[in-house]
Design a protein around this nucleic acid. Sequence first.
DNA 1: CCGCATTGACTACAAGTGTAATCTTAAATA
DNA 2: TATTTAAGATTACACTTGTAGTCAATGCGG
Lengths: 124, 124
Amino acid sequence: MIEVSKTEEEVLNALWQAHPTSASELITRLNQTKPWHEKTAKTLLNRLVKKQAVGFEKQGRSYLYFPLIEKQDYAVSQSQGFLDRLFNGKLAPLVAGFSKTEQLKREDIDELKQIIKDWEQKND
Amino acid sequence: MIEVSKTEEEVLNALWQAHPTSASELITRLNQTKPWHEKTAKTLLNRLVKKQAVGFEKQGRSYLYFPLIEKQDYAVSQSQGFLDRLFNGKLAPLVAGFSKTEQLKREDIDELKQIIKDWEQKND
DNA sequence: CCGCATTGACTACAAGTGTAATCTTAAATA
DNA sequence: TATTTAAGATTACACTTGTAGTCAATGCGG
C-alpha cells in the first residue's frame, strides 16, 4: 500500500468525499474543516499524484482530480497496520481499551451488536 | 500526547514488554522480531529519552531504561486519533470494514461479544 | 488587445525520520 | 598494566514532511 503522510491523508479524505474535483473546489472543501493555505494544499495534492494515490484529467486549462485508491481499501489496510502495531493484530484489545477507559457509549455498543448479528447471519 | 515515530514506537513496544532494561537487553529483545542495528536502536532510544517518552537511571557504567508513558494510555490515545482520521471518530465503521472484507474470525466475534457483555454488566 | 488573476510547475527550507558511523570513556581481559 | 571492547555521546546524511513562495502560461475582464 502507498505511503500517505498525515496531511496528505487529509487531502485524500476531502477528495474521497466527492470526485472528480478541481483543485480550487477541493480546497474549498478542505477549508470547511480547518483553514488551509492554497499552496500547501496544492503541494500535497501534487505529492499524492506523484505517489499515484491520485490521478487527474485535463479539463480546459485546469485539472480534475480523483483518487486512485479506494477509501475502503485504504482504511482496512491502515486499520490492520494499526492493530499490528499496538494490539498484536487483534481487534478485541482495541475495543477493550476503549471500554476500560469509558469511551464506549451505548450507541457504539448497539452498532457493534448489529455488526455481530450481521456477521453471524452470514457465517452461522 | 508525545509524538512518537514509527520506529521509535517499535522500540517503545519492546521496552513496554519488560522494564527497566539495559540497552543491550532491549536490543536483544528487538532482534527477536526483526534484525536491528545496534546503533539504530540506540539512536531511537535516545530520541525517546529526549522526547520524554522514556527515562533511565544509572546502573554502574550503563543505564537502565524504562517507559515514561503507559502503553494503555498511549494505545487508547492513538486509537482515538486513528478513528478520527479515517472513521469520523467512530469505532463501529472500523469493525464493519473488517467484517466486510472477511477479516473477522469467529474468535474475534466471540471476544467482542464478551467485551459487550462485560460492558452491559457494568452499565445496565 | 492588455494587464490581471488563476492554475499548475518548480523551488525553498527547516524539522523530523531512518539508518548508521565516529568519538570518548570506562570497564573487562589478556 | 596495556589493550580490546562495550556504552553512551556526538555527528552524519539523505529522504520525507509541513508549509509556503516564486515562476510561467493561459484565459478573462475591461
